[in-house]
């Protein structure tokens, strides 16, 4: 058994200086901002990092419409930014009327077919931006409309992530290949879901969120650590 060392011994400290920009502020209701809750509002997109021990890192977006583009140093970047030679707003992914579609602002193709108007996406399609950026589009679970984007070319966001979750209703993490995040050694599924504008989690496993059992009344906060017998992940809000 590894030796567990408490945080104070190991010196956990908040980020300072020019550090990674995971934590700049975004528009959230004042009450929620004060409490640090992860708030989901209908008219804005929320983005989180899921840091999963032994598994990887995923960007999780909540909303129904997501723009994709290159990062910009001035003005507003696209929702999903990729370090690639593409436009600042290259295409937009939308979930409406029970299906996903892509709207191209610049050269985009879906599974080899060039598209210029709104085009439906099916699970397994390959999205190609400016010919060189290849993204896989999957809706792995029949229980959820949430989509997963994986990187088929070498283009990535600024930091290494294993994939992007476009969360419509639920995000399933667990030992099945049909879960949004495949965690082969986990004993059971953990479900992330949005309720009353906040992100929460649920599982049949005995989990603890920041040391307390999860409940519908206890939303996940920015920086919350979800801990179980054989799993641990941290949620961090990105702005």
């Amino acid at each position: 058994m590894p030796q567990f060392i408490n945080d104070s011994q190991r010196g956990i400290r908040p980020h300072t200086g020019i550090g990674p920009r995971w934590a700049t502020k975004r528009i959230v209701p004042a009450a929620a901002a004060n409490s640090g809750e992860c708030v989901v509002s209908n008219d804005s997109i929320q983005c989180y990092m899921l840091w999963i021990d032994g598994i990887g890192a995923w960007q999780l977006y909540l909303g129904h419409s997501f723009s994709i583009g290159a990062p910009t140093f001035e003005g507003k970047s696209a929702d999903i930014t990729l370090q690639a030679n593409i436009s600042r707003r290259h295409a937009t992914l939308q979930y409406a009327a029970d299906h996903w579609q892509v709207t191209a602002d610049h050269q985009t193709s879906v599974s080899g077919r060039s598209v210029d108007s709104a085009t439906s996406l099916r699970s397994g399609d390959q999205l190609s931006l400016a010919d060189r950026v290849k993204l896989g589009f999957h809706v792995p679970s029949i229980l959820s409309s949430t989509a997963v984007i994986d990187f088929e070319s070498t283009h990535r966001p600024v930091h290494s992530v294993d994939g992007i979750i476009l969360m419509v209703d639920h995000c399933l993490l667990g030992p099945g290949r049909d879960q949004h995040i495949y965690c082969p050694d986990w004993p059971d599924i953990v479900v992330l879901y949005a309720l009353e504008g906040s992100l929460r989690c649920r599982s049949s496993l005995p989990l603890k969120v920041d040391g307390r059992p999860p409940s519908d009344s206890a939303p996940l906060k920015d920086g919350s650590i979800v801990d179980g017998e054989n799993l641990r992940f941290r949620i961090e809000e990105i702005h």
């Binding site: 590894p2 190991r10 956990i12």
Partner: peptide
């Protein structure tokens, strides 16, 4: 694992996962 996310056992580095 021994270290929790956000731990900083080494000056200048923050563990993420």
């Amino acid at each position: 694992f021994t270290f929790v996310p956000e731990a900083s056992p080494l000056e200048g580095y923050t563990i993420k996962r």
